[in-house]
Nucleic acid binder design. Structure first.
Lengths: 150, 150
DNA sequence: CGCCAGTTGCAAATCGTTTGCAGTTCACAC
DNA sequence: GTGTGAACTGCAAACGATTTGCAACTGGCG
């Protein structure tokens, strides 16, 4: 399963991303720019290692990719997803968007379908009220077997 | 946050669990029985290490706890949860129940509230139909700040 | 009572991720 | 430009959860 269905119809271009990053008063280095460029082309959450592998050979160390992803997450340009295997995956975040959405993951081939919209918000509200919690959010991912794997 | 709210009102007793386990044609050993006994007393998902720590000192190796939990999971007596930190947690499963439910986790103190019921099933159905997926399930956990931590 | 597949302890191995440290470089000041 | 210091990077070692190889051990059936 490799389809890149209806997702991120219009990824921002590199210059725009770079500008956004600079606005956060961060140093724009080769590795960071390259990581942004890779993320820009991903239709689905990408693991650190995948990003590393997609980088021009030897551009930088794996540790640097991890550090770059942390910075990008901290400044809100990237969102971390946990798709159920213990591997962190990252997606570029549109400016000013919290990027809240979910995924449908094939448990056979690990293929991913992006799900737009989220209907759990009311539940969230109710839970917060009932339990006195603040700042309630949620993590929701779907798993199943995709057509190709059945 | 340590409250053990409205959860598992009636945990099965040890003999019953032991019988269930035996029915799966597994060897009932000291460590396994002890792990069941610990799980029986948990109101919330417990990490392998917590279970290990709660065991009579020196009863068995940590590796054995991991192995026991795997067996219990395989025979459907225990369910694994991922509460967002990279640590597996386990809850005893009532017989014949798939134990599907969710949790509300405090991001400050890691306290857990058990959530009963689940309203995502219709969404699940729709996703399966729309994407041609089979056997669709989901993983949903809520995070927030509990009253005591605010 | 004996056997042996299933279990266990122990230590070493994995795997994703993080970190200490010394050397390098970006971005702003002059 | 050129200098400078804070940020950044490479490398290798450290980490923490979990798994595994292997030899010794033990439930539970015959």
């Amino acid at each position: 399963m490799t389809e890149r269905a209806h997702s991120h119809p219009e990824q921002p271009d590199l210059p725009e991303l770079v500008a956004r990053f600079r606005r956060q008063s961060r140093k724009l280095t080769g590795p960071r720019q390259a990581v942004l460029e890779i993320l820009r082309r991903q239709a689905h959450p990408a693991a650190s290692k995948e990003i590393f592998a997609a980088l021009p050979r030897g551009l930088c160390d794996l540790a640097t990719v991890y550090r770059a992803l942390h910075v990008l997450e901290r400044v809100g340009m990237v969102k971390r997803y946990d798709l159920g295997d213990g591997i962190a995956r990252f997606e570029l975040l549109p400016e000013g968007d919290d990027g809240h959405h979910h995924h449908l993951v094939c448990t056979r081939c690990a293929g991913v379908v992006e799900i737009e919209g989220c209907s759990v918000d009311e539940v969230e509200q109710r839970l917060a009220a009932q339990n006195g919690f603040k700042a309630v959010t949620h993590r929701l991912e779907f798993f199943g077997i995709c057509p190709a794997c059945q």
